[in-house]
Design a protein around this nucleic acid. Structure first.
Lengths: 191, 191
DNA sequence: GTCTATAATTTGATAGAC
DNA sequence: GTCTATCAAATTATAGAC
C-alpha cells in the first residue's frame, strides 16, 4: 500500500503506541527518535511534519483495522460470527494491547487536531458504519435509519468500553461493559 | 465547597472548555490567561501548578455533574424518569455545550495525566457506577454483578456517544447512538 | 538515511515589585 | 491579586555535512 521503509514502520509503531495512551500531543519527535534509536531530525526525514505523521498513523490504523474485519457479507461467515469478530477487534485493543483505539482517542480530541488528521479520523468511523450497515442488513434490519442508529450505538458502546478500560487500567471493564449490553447478549447462544 | 474567587472560577471555566475540546495538553497557562484577561503568572497565583489546576477542574466537574443528577432513589422521581435524567446529563454536553465529557476525555488519555488528576478522574466513574447501581436496584436488578455490568454498559455507551458527536462535530450522532440502543428503548413509552 | 547544529516558539514555573 | 521579567526545558522544524 504505502510501501514504507522498515524504519518508517518502526516510527509509526512507536507514535501509535504513544498516541493511543495519551493523545496527539502525547508524543514528540524527540521521544519517538529515542525509542527507535535515531535522532529527531531523522524522523522528520520520514515524516516532514507532525501533520504528515498523524495522517499516516490514522491511515495505517484504519487500513489494518478494516482488513482484520474482513467482509461483512462473506457467506462463509454467519452474521452472528461476523458480529462477534467485530467485537473481538475492539476487545483486542483492551485486552492484548491495553490501549485506546487510535481513532477513538483522536475522535475525542478532534477539535485540537490538524484538519488533515481530523478528516482521516472521521473516515475510520465512516468505514465502520458502512461495514455495520451491511452486516445489520443480514440480520433483517432493512430500514436505513434503523441501521444507522444501531451502527452508531454499537460503535459508541465499544469505544466507550475502551475508554473505561483505559480510565481504570483494567481490561475487564471492557468485558463487563460489553457483557452488560442487551444488543450483544441477544445472540449469546449462537457461539 | 471550595469557596473560590470569581477569577478562579473564570479560570476553571476556560480551562474546562479547552480541555473538553482537546485534552489535558490542549490548554496552557498563557492561553487561559489571555482568555480571562490577565497574565499567566496570575493564573499560577490561583493554581500553582498544572496538576493543581487539573485536580480542581475534575473535582468541580464531578461535583456539578453529580449534583444535577440528584438522588437515584428519590421517591419523588420514578426510576424511568431518573434514568431519563441521567441520559439527559450527557445529552447536555453533546447538544448544548457541544463538548466531550471532561472525565471521558481525561479517562481516554489517563496514562498521560499527572497521577493526582488520574485518581480524581476515576472517582467520577466510581460515583457514576454507584449512582446507577442504586437506580438499577429500583428496576429489580438485584444481582451485584448484573448491576455492575449494566452500569458499565450504560456509561460506556453514553461516553462513546459523546466521542462520536465530537468526531463528527454533530450532536445528532449522540442522539442516534442513544436511540439505537435497546437498553434505553425498552422504556420509551414511559415519558 | 542519519547526523550535528541551530532557529523560533511555546511551555510550566518562579522572583520580586506594586 | 496582578504585574514585569525571566528561566530552563521542550517543541516543531530546517540547513547542510557525511
Amino acid at each position: 500500500m504505502a510501501d514504507r521503509s522498515s524504519k518508517a514502520e518502526e516510527i509509526l509503531d512507536t507514535a501509535e503506541a504513544m498516541a493511543r495512551e495519551s493523545g496527539f500531543s502525547g508524543f514528540s519527535f524527540r521521544e519517538i527518535a529515542t525509542a527507535v534509536g535515531i535522532k529527531s531530525a531523522s524522523v522528520h526525514y520520514h515524516f516532514p511534519t507532525k501533520d504528515d505523521l498523524g495522517v499516516a498513523m490514522v491511515q495505517r490504523y484504519t487500513d489494518r483495522f478494516m482488513a482484520t474485519l474482513g467482509e461483512p457479507d462473506d457467506p462463509a461467515r454467519t452474521p452472528d460470527r461476523a458480529f462477534r469478530d467485530y467485537v473481538a477487534a475492539f476487545a483486542k485493543a483492551a485486552v492484548e494491547e491495553r490501549k485506546m483505539c487510535l481513532c477513538g482517542m483522536f475522535g475525542a480530541e478532534i477539535l485540537g487536531l490538524p484538519l488533515t488528521v481530523a478528516s482521516e479520523t472521521r473516515r475510520f468511523f465512516d468505514l465502520n458504519r458502512q461495514w455495520l450497515k451491511v452486516l445489520l442488513a443480514r440480520f433483517g434490519i432493512d430500514d436505513a435509519e434503523d441501521q444507522d442508529g444501531k451502527a452508531f450505538a454499537i460503535i459508541a458502546t465499544l469505544e466507550g468500553a475502551l475508554l473505561l478500560s483505559q480510565a481504570y487500567d483494567d481490561p475487564t471493564a471492557f468485558e463487563r461493559a460489553v457483557a452488560g449490553l442487551g444488543i450483544l447478549n441477544q445472540r449469546d447462544d449462537s457461539r
